[in-house]
Write a protein that binds this DNA or RNA. Structure first.
Lengths: 330, 330
DNA sequence: TCCAGAAACTTGAACGATCCAATCCTGCCT
DNA sequence: AGGCAGGATTGGATCGTTCAAGTTTCTGGA
């Protein structure tokens, strides 16, 4: 039975002290090159690996970051978080961190979960998603000086905490301009009721693009909760107007899918663009605005490690540009 | 600043020794009831939480289980793992475990990942998904006596290791019987090329149901790789046969979605049933066979904890029954 | 050659829990 | 009253690492 390889085993093998091995691992610059190499060879030869538990006990840091996994409500938009999570795990591994999952029924229980994760597992940081106006979670974490990054802007105060987000307005603007170039003039918008950080942002992009083209958006928009059925009937409503749109930009693929069903029967083909580029969009040939989720996840890890390494308290937020994936519907 | 609460703090507060507090936590039955209560009160009063790091260092166990998160290839079927993962996290929390994620490009690197996770983080166990014929991962883990459960049967030898699975054959059989009850006689099947554990199983259910009804399945099936396009053209192929089917059961929602597109133009409506009940199925009104993923995840945790608690080396495998979710297409 | 000062390396202690072996009760039997 | 079994409780050692402080080695200038 192979004996456990500890830092002491390596030290003996390389004929140095424990501390020198530790220095090779943590502060290699203070170790003489020759010694460093000797220790490195011993590490490889013995297959040594640092015990995170022991390190954690001494330093109080676990090299673990946590993210909440939500029950896939909609299922359609759920895949966005799924892809983000994969990117996060991958980027975290490169930076020497691991991702731990947790669930929480509501915000209150989420805060209880923080408390538990922090005291029992010495978690290093959190990645939050779907932060909203005056989120109690960010306040709780900030108060206790826990490192965290949000995927999604703090809409009240953009300097409240580090964040990474995708420029939704730029995405809808791009979609709208694409439709304008295709000759559409009456371009509708299906979005969510205000106030909604994400929703208002996406609406603003559409509106700005129309304004820039000298078109009045009045009467061309509808605001409903997210969902396929909601998308379908609000699109029908839009089509029944005096001057119905010939194209529509939607705040989500769910709405777009509903719109598509409403439009199917209509005579002159009405163009539809969705948002998020979910698998459903790919499956049904829906043109959609795509978020660079892998990139977003990588930036989250960057910001989080910057805070954890103490480089800076609040690193510059990151705003990424989405792209338009053209398919059959527009 | 609140001082850190350790087992010693609790001991002092409850006027007992450290060991007694430890006993209250780990083997409460050997502590006198009165003492136990006094210690419990102190724990609550001080907000004490056991330091996993310290416990882990002494015991070598981390109360952490790991699961691989794969890049959502298809996106459609990816959501299955996503839902499973949520269930797993939830059930693990109840059992006092946490879920850690890892990625791995290929099988070889996955084994390297095991090594790393085990030696650095003292991982307690793994949940594997998509195990296949003669999987090297299970062999590696078994050899080192690492606890693991597979979500998916070991198709060669059903007693090779603990597993949880969903009875795919029962699902396709149920779907087929449903179509028979609706009066269909010529019921086709779109599946994957053999050998494929999951695929062959699902095909077998369809075939058995037809046999039971005295129908010859010859010429009614097609085998292709998974995908929407593949589903579409193989369904067209099936429709061009001498006696085309009036209904089709598919091995996945991707294939079913393709089949649906091929069928859309056909005059007498051809019924389509998918498999996995993905969000895409829900969105497009596709009737599909649904796997009880939350239940499966919970059983995985049950088996894994049984192994970890040393109750039994190889607990009974679990085979769950899927259900048929009826929508517009069948 | 000698010495100051920096660089490189070593030693002892500590993190917070559990394991082990030893001690203290308590009630019961003689 | 004394002895004893057995459960309840205690103190010391330990896991593998890093921190703090100490010791040795090296470098270069007088």
């Amino acid at each position: 039975m192979a004996e456990k390889v500890t830092i002491a085993t390596v030290a003996r093998h390389a004929r140095v002290s424990r501390q020198t091995v530790s220095n090779v691992l943590n502060t290699p610059q203070i170790v003489r090159e020759e010694t460093r190499q000797r220790v490195q060879e011993a590490i490889v030869a013995l297959g040594y690996r640092v015990s995170q538990a022991a390190r954690q006990m001494r330093t109080g840091r676990s090299r673990l970051i946590a993210m909440r996994i939500e029950p896939t409500r909609d299922g359609i938009n759920g895949s966005v978080l799924d892809r983000f999570l994969h990117g996060l795990t991958e980027s975290a591994e490169v930076a020497g961190y691991r991702v731990m999952l947790y669930t929480a029924g509501d915000t209150e229980r989420e805060i209880t979960a923080y408390d538990d994760l922090l005291s029992a597992y010495d978690l290093d940081g959190f990645v939050l998603t779907g932060t909203d106006h005056g989120d109690p979670r960010t306040a709780w974490l900030a108060e206790r000086e826990v490192a965290f990054v949000a995927f999604g802007r703090p809409w009240d105060d953009l300097t409240a905490h580090p964040w990474v987000d995708v420029d939704g307005a730029a995405g809808t603007a791009r979609a709208t301009r694409h439709l304008l170039e295709r000759g559409h003039r009456r371009i509708g918008f299906l979005g969510w009721p205000a106030p909604s950080g994400v929703g208002d942002d996406r609406r603003a992009g559409w509106r700005a693009a129309l304004h820039a083209a000298g078109i009045d958006p009045a009467g061309l928009e509808r605001a409903v909760e997210d969902g396929i059925a909601e998308g379908e009937w609000s699109m029908r409503d839009l089509l029944n107007a005096d001057e119905p749109p010939t194209a529509v930009v939607c705040a989500s693929d769910s709405l777009a899918l509903g719109a598509l069903q409403a439009v199917r029967a209509s005579d002159p083909a009405v163009a539809v663009v969705g948002f998020d580029d979910t698998p459903v969009a790919a499956a049904t040939g829906l043109t959609s605005v795509s978020q660079p989720l892998g990139e977003a996840a990588a930036r989250c890890v960057d910001l989080l490690t910057a805070v954890l390494d103490g480089d800076q308290q609040s690193p510059e937020p990151v705003l990424l540009q989405p792209s338009l994936v053209l398919r059959h519907t527009a």
